[in-house]
Design a binder for these strands. Structure first.
Length: 233
DNA sequence: CGGGTTTGACCAGCGC
DNA sequence: GCGCTGGTCAAACCCG
């Protein structure tokens, strides 16, 4: 679903990024629960590479997922508007009114690369700028996974235990962004939670990093979940 | 008292 | 160089 030029331009990149969306009948709270599991197809950068991301999803989830074309880099602050309020969101919402997500798998943890998307909406990221990766507090950028969920509660139960370490009001938004860290020792996974400015009913959750442990509760599901979560995180 | 949250300060990157 | 911004820190605070 990536544009051909994107694939050709970035054959050398080991990292991968794609969208996968959730059907209209799947909506909301506890999206990543431990009730059952489903496997989400994931389009990789290399044309012949088909990644599989695995998440735990409620039974009501319709597994017939639509892969959406990726057209932006959510890590760029400049792209936030296109993601959350621009024409792409509109198109996504038409087909998937409740939830969408983007995922990333970075198989080379020591290589920090960003990507340039090829599309018609002037949302591309300069490949030169992509090389200007900051090496401030976080030397290695961890894999990220982001999704949007319609929910009244900000923090969805994903089976892990989180400690809030910060909150920030982001520019041009009415709702603060919250920062969480996994409470498990030696686990450096973080997540950000914020509400969509254009639609406060929507919660944007961004996970960063890979858990080095199983979810902290739901023992009966932990065996299956841990195996699957290992694939994702 | 221990663990989690709040919140102002601080820091580094980026754009101008 | 400076100001803006996002991300993080850490002391104070809260709560069971």
């Amino acid at each position: 679903m990536f544009s051909q030029s994107l694939l050709e331009d970035h054959q050398d990149m080991s990292s991968q990024l794609g969208f996968f969306s959730f059907p209209p009948n799947y909506n909301n709270v506890g999206m990543i629960s431990t009730t059952t599991t489903a496997t989400l197809p994931f389009i990789g950068y290399n044309q012949n590479t088909l990644k599989t991301l695995t998440m735990n999803i409620p039974p009501s989830f319709d597994h017939s997922l639509n892969i959406q074309e990726s057209t932006h880099d959510p890590r760029r602050k400049e792209d936030l508007s296109p993601i959350f309020g621009g024409p792409h969101l509109h198109s996504l919402q038409k087909s998937t009114p409740n939830t969408w997500a983007w995922g990333e798998v970075n198989e080379s943890s020591n290589i920090i690369k960003r990507r340039e998307f090829d599309h018609d909406h002037n949302l591309g990221v300069s490949s030169i700028k992509m090389k200007k990766i900051k090496s401030s507090r976080r030397k290695v950028r961890e894999p990220r996974f982001c999704f949007k969920t319609m929910s009244d509660v900000d923090v969805l139960d994903d089976g892990y235990k989180w400690r809030k370490y910060g909150q920030k009001v982001v520019k041009n938004t009415q709702h603060p962004r919250s920062y969480y860290r996994c409470t498990q020792d030696n686990c450096r996974v973080k997540k950000r939670v914020e509400r969509l400015a254009e639609d406060p009913r929507m919660v944007i959750t961004t996970y960063e990093g890979r858990h080095v442990h199983s979810p902290s509760h739901d023992e009966e599901d932990s065996q299956a979940s841990s195996q699957l979560n290992n694939l994702l995180w």
